[in-house]
């Protein structure tokens, strides 16, 4: 039972990986906390979370095979 996490943009500076397979966690809140513990710099970084390409606004349960994306804002032009 696993989930896949994608990190985009400058988040990869913090995590050093753009993709990560993890044993399944109950929901997006626990996944976020788990990753913030592993990568403390995420705490002060802006990003939104999407599950299976749908942005989430509140905690959401995770199931085997879910793809979770962490997307930061870009400002360059």
């Amino acid at each position: 039972m696993t989930i896949t996490v994608y990190f985009f943009g400058s988040l990869v500076d913090i995590t050093s990986v753009s993709k990560k397979e993890l044993p399944i966690l109950m929901d997006t809140n626990s996944l976020n906390l788990h990753l913030q513990k592993e990568y403390p710099a995420l705490v002060n970084t802006k990003y939104f979370i999407a599950v299976n390409q749908q942005m989430i606004k509140a905690n959401r349960n995770l199931i085997h095979g879910d793809i979770v994306a962490f997307m930061p804002p870009f400002s360059g032009g």
Partner: peptide
């Protein structure tokens, strides 16, 4: 490419 459907705020 990666596409994300955006959720409108309440």
């Amino acid at each position: 490419g990666y596409e994300i459907e955006i959720s409108a705020s309440e």
